[in-house]
Deep mutational scan, measured.
Amino acid sequence: NQASVVANQLIPISTHLTLVMMRSEVVTPVGIPAEDIPRLVSMQVNRAVPLGTTLMPDMVKGYA
């Protein structure tokens, strides 16, 4: 099972991601792979992401 990136807190819209905001967890459905966490740092979310939500490629500007 592959770990995905999950929000560690509420991430407001247009926030630049930091390591503190993300954790890796095995979830269904599978989202952005956990090994991409370093790549996600300083990218922006294009919507509010609630605590515990799996980050999907379409939620992060410039990821997909």
Rank of each mutant, 00 (worst) to 15 (best):
T53E: 10
S42G: 15
V26N: 12
S14P: 01
E35D: 11
M59G: 03
M56F: 10
N8H: 06
V6A: 02
E25L: 09
T28S: 14
A48I: 15
P12N: 08
S14G: 13
E35G: 15
L19T: 11
R47P: 03
T53C: 07
G62Q: 07
N46S: 11
R39K: 13
I13F: 13
I32F: 02
I32M: 03
M59W: 11
V41Q: 06
P50Q: 11
M43C: 07
L40F: 01
V45K: 00
A3Q: 10
G31R: 00
A7M: 04
L40V: 04
S14V: 04
I11D: 00
P38R: 08
G31A: 03
M59C: 05
M43K: 11
T53Q: 11
S14Q: 11
P12K: 11
V49T: 04
V45G: 01
L19C: 07
D58V: 09
A48V: 15
G52F: 05
I32W: 00
V5F: 03
I13C: 08
H16M: 13
A64Q: 10
D36A: 13
V45F: 02
T54C: 05
S14D: 13
T53H: 13
V27T: 12
L55T: 01
V30T: 14
A64N: 15
Y63I: 04
T28C: 08
A34Q: 07
I11P: 02
H16A: 13
D58H: 12
A3K: 12
A34W: 06
D58P: 06
L51C: 08
K61C: 06
G31N: 01
K61M: 15
V27I: 08
Q2L: 10
T15R: 06
H16F: 14
A34I: 06
K61Y: 13
V26H: 10
H16S: 15
G62T: 06
P38T: 11
S42C: 07
V49Y: 02
N8Q: 12
S42Y: 12
E25I: 07
V30Y: 15
A64L: 15
T53I: 08
P38C: 07
V20D: 15
P12L: 05
H16T: 13
Q44S: 11
V41M: 06
Q44P: 05
S4L: 02
D36P: 01
H16W: 12
R39P: 02
D58N: 12
L55K: 01
Q2I: 12
S42K: 11
V27F: 01
H16I: 13
P29H: 05
A48S: 15
Q44Y: 05
T53N: 08
L40A: 02
P38Y: 13
P50E: 13
A34H: 06
T18P: 00
I11S: 01
L10R: 12
V49I: 12
N46K: 08
M21N: 07
P57Y: 07
E35S: 15
N1E: 14
K61E: 15
S24R: 09
P57W: 11
L40K: 00
M56R: 09
I11W: 01
Q9T: 10
I37R: 07
K61I: 14
N1Y: 10
A64S: 11
P29D: 06
P12D: 07
S24K: 10
S4I: 01
P33F: 09
Y63E: 04
L51Y: 12
Y63P: 04
Q2S: 09
A7I: 04
M43E: 04
P38H: 11
